[in-house]
Design a protein around this nucleic acid. Structure first.
Lengths: 205, 205
DNA sequence: GGGTGTCGATCGATCGATCGATAGACGACG
DNA sequence: CGTCGTCTATCGATCGATCGATCGACACCC
């Protein structure tokens, strides 16, 4: 529950962003007051508005940055790999890494969409759909490549994969027993087995 | 965002519970005001306090009920089945059913733990740990039964399984394309493959 | 007439947001 | 050089609204 204050050496604009990330992730958007935000960033609540629009604008900016980064990373993976199974494995590793290294961002993105007004929500959901559609086609390609039976449901598998990988943000700790790359590799194995790849014995990289 | 009001025929105490479930799930705990809660339940905000303690008490009661039910159902599954693979398959089906049929409860339980004070949070986390420990031992038994290599991580697999199954609450709609039992069965197949069961061809029931 | 429900009125606190004021940095002009 | 005007950054004070919670009063029922 207690969140240590943001380091006060960075420029104020970054401190505001960091403070919002810390507090929105820890207490939720509605659970975070403007004054807490200001105190955490080392400014007065009035000064806060020199760097942001409304509180909701701040939330949207965080979500947009995070989602655009995920999309760019996913597109880079698809560009870099041709083999369907390798693509999926690398997509899983990328997603797991992102959620483990930036749990605050992903927690805010995954958990605060419903507080947005209609316009902002539409924008964020469009970005999320773009990201998920990349996964969708990669999963479909894998199912085709392994000659999956007609009953296999790519949408179901995609949802199961994404939820399972996003969950990493809720439990991974950098000081835990296994290094992040191990977790990412293991998740790639679990994910490939999940979709039905018989022997996911690909090299890690 | 709009949430239709709770039917006004039920007794007031149930209406309060239902209203809290609706609004906490849709707008979050901090996003829901006492007056919205009262209006949704068809009472005045003062009358609300005839049926509940504090707003937080109401939240805790919802969480406790949901978690105790999950624990009881999980224990029933373990009692009814002896084969490790069948146990895990049935555990998955149960969890998926629960999250699809009661998305509001599970969304509140999964997403609002951090708003609780220390005492209430400790109680809820204890219940959650009880539930997860049941899964943990079932997953371990499956790994042993199939002679999994020593490198397999039961904790990792358990977390992946639980996150993937809980995600159903975020997308399942009863009017969707596949009936709930299909989804539950498919998830059981995906989950067994995930942990490494070679041919999860068990009958559905 | 003691419970059982229900309510309007209201409490102090906090909410998100805005105001006008102030202090300093920087360049332009004479 | 000095000294204006503008721009950026910051703040205390305060706005109206809403927050969670409580009070005393009223109505009904057994």
């Amino acid at each position: 529950m207690p969140v240590p204050p943001t380091a006060s050496t960075a420029p104020a604009e970054e401190r505001v962003r960091e403070a919002a990330l810390d507090l929105f992730a820890a207490r939720g958007y509605h659970g975070t007051g403007i004054r807490q935000l200001a105190e955490h960033a080392g400014l007065s609540s009035a000064s806060l508005y020199h760097y942001m629009g409304t509180k909701e604008d701040l939330l949207v900016a965080i979500m947009r940055t995070c989602l655009e980064r995920l999309i760019a990373d996913a597109e880079a993976v698809v560009t870099a790999r041709a083999d369907p199974e390798e693509r999926l494995a690398e997509l899983i590793r990328m997603h797991v890494r992102a959620h483990a290294e930036r749990p605050r961002e992903t927690r805010v993105v995954d958990g605060e969409v419903e507080v947005l007004g209609a316009a902002a929500r539409a924008e964020v959901i469009t970005l999320r759909d773009r990201y998920e559609s990349i996964w969708q086609s990669v999963v479909e390609d894998v199912l085709t490549a392994i000659g999956a039976p007609a009953g296999e449901d790519a949408r179901l598998a995609r949802r199961a994969l994404l939820e399972m990988c996003s969950g990493v943000a809720r439990w991974y700790r950098p000081d835990g027993r296994s290094p992040l790359e191990d977790v990412a590799d293991r998740y790639a194995v679990l994910g490939l087995r999940l979709v039905g790849v018989p022997h996911p014995s690909h090299p890690s990289h």
